[in-house]
Design a protein around this nucleic acid. Sequence first.
DNA 1: CTGAAAGCGCTTACAG
DNA 2: CTGAAAGCGCTTACAG
Lengths: 345, 345
Amino acid sequence: MATVKDVADLAGVSTATISRVLNNHPQVADETRSKVLWAMEQLNYQPSRVARRLRMEASQILGLIISDIANPFFTSVVRGIEDVAYANGYSLFLCNSDEDPAKEELYIQVLLAEKVAGVIISPTDEDGITCKTLVESGVPLVAMDRRLRRLEVDTVVVDNVLGAYEAVSHLIQLGHRRIGLIGGPVHITTGRERQEGYKKALTEHGIGLDEGLIKIGDFKQGSGYQMACELLETDDPPTAIFTANNLMTLGALNAIHEKGLNIPRDVAIVGFDDMPWAPSLDPPLTAVAQPTYELGCTAANLLLQRIADKDREIVEMKLEPTLIIRASCGHNEKRGQSKSGDHGA
Amino acid sequence: MATVKDVADLAGVSTATISRVLNNHPQVADETRSKVLWAMEQLNYQPSRVARRLRMEASQILGLIISDIANPFFTSVVRGIEDVAYANGYSLFLCNSDEDPAKEELYIQVLLAEKVAGVIISPTDEDGITCKTLVESGVPLVAMDRRLRRLEVDTVVVDNVLGAYEAVSHLIQLGHRRIGLIGGPVHITTGRERQEGYKKALTEHGIGLDEGLIKIGDFKQGSGYQMACELLETDDPPTAIFTANNLMTLGALNAIHEKGLNIPRDVAIVGFDDMPWAPSLDPPLTAVAQPTYELGCTAANLLLQRIADKDREIVEMKLEPTLIIRASCGHNEKRGQSKSGDHGA
DNA sequence: CTGAAAGCGCTTACAG
DNA sequence: CTGAAAGCGCTTACAG
């Protein structure tokens, strides 16, 4: 591969001049510039970003640590981040912590060692001990989707309490009194806040809490299935279930269908996360839609602003979720889907 | 941030020794090693991967160019790649070409400039003009999910012809004669091969091709919706539809449900890609399951092997898809789901 | 407007 | 077993 030296030799100038052309330095004679450009063309020269990064303090790379790349909720988020990054000339270094603090820590070290310009993270744990290292090193950091409790960092989240509150309130308005929760881990802010919204809705409507109706999963499909089984196999099962993310919703649906129960007649269900397949589920899923793409864009914009101005005040943004009412909650009961029965899956 | 120099000064040795400890060089006196380790600890030293990469030829980074990060098919693939990379001490540099050759080209330049150890790509175009640059630069490359026609590179794909052939043959065996195709772009090998399998099944069963039943989308949900509308709004609509990927399947389902048609009574459907939500769709989707995670693992392993041995012969692997029969094809018709009617979505 | 020289933080023959 | 020195490919004051 050609280097500045090769280009300089061919163009008959110094390497400093090559660098100046590369960086659009204004005071380069037009004639010199053309010679250099010509030489670059000839040699198919690609400047090494590695060498450049060693010399300069700022890189053109953003680090991104996602807690579960297999969760389709994040694909749209990543897409938003990627679009903003691309539009601003940044590339993405994507890491998947897989909800494992050890992997998260390793990747934070890697990103630090890679001298990324900034990091966006959906942390595996609200205490974020490892994130402290980042912040202390002065690397701009944005917490996305999940908060970092003890750290003063830019944050963009969805109003999880509100989303859960609206979902559960809707079930209550439809007449449900025994509502099960399949929640997420409480050490993750989304898990805890959605549980908080659930409890708030019950309390405000004068319904006592039944701890037996609260099951905590791990935001993955398998746990949704298992927790739904536990809820439905009791003597006094809930008449409705609220699931705290899209994967656990799918797991719960598996369990309900497997038992031959009818939704919403035997058990109603409302899930957090509206996904492209929600309208085509059996029956169409009532869901709390999160502004996923916007979440990603906002996180990326916050990070770019922070990179541009390290002294800006800390910003915390809370985006609004929307309850999308379809059939799984029983709202449209009259329209006949209670006849559908089991689908032989 | 501390550098080798700082550590060397504190430990009272030369920077060369620090480097040797860092790289587990065997001939370092135990006592010296402990001193160095202690100094590193004291300074919370993190070696710069950037500086290291400038000096060494091989980096610990794999580049990954995905054609559409918003397609959940790829999340499991990325997961497979990531697991293998992580287990071997590599990190991932993920790029999303968004089916745009210009973005693909830019990212290839970035990855080259970043001196990644190798690249895995699902190319936007089978001609892969930009991929040639990579190959010519001697960077190990693996084509994944989609082939690169003119290039001699390691490749791992799924047997798309077989998958489509089995799906369509199954519909034929259930009595269908007018089967619509919602296919992918023909300049992408998955699009063309799935169409090939569709045609092969019809031909082998003595059914003539009707070009009016073949609609080409772009592998995204919107086009699945639109093409399904076009197919269903003709005078002589198909009795069954085969969709060539998961997003177009969702789009087609939207169209079918919107028109109040019953699946499979009015129109049967079989889709490429089995996804976690397929069993919970209305009705459960008969689908061609791709070994997505394995696809990712295989691609990563091929790349790591190639990095280790640049002279190894070119390998092309073809993984087997599996037809998962559920209710949307009409196979389980007798079990009563034809009664289900519209869900009021 | 341009060049010579130093330096970013590492690693690696080469001596000893 | 360890150190002095050169070099990876850039950029940037400092001169001129």
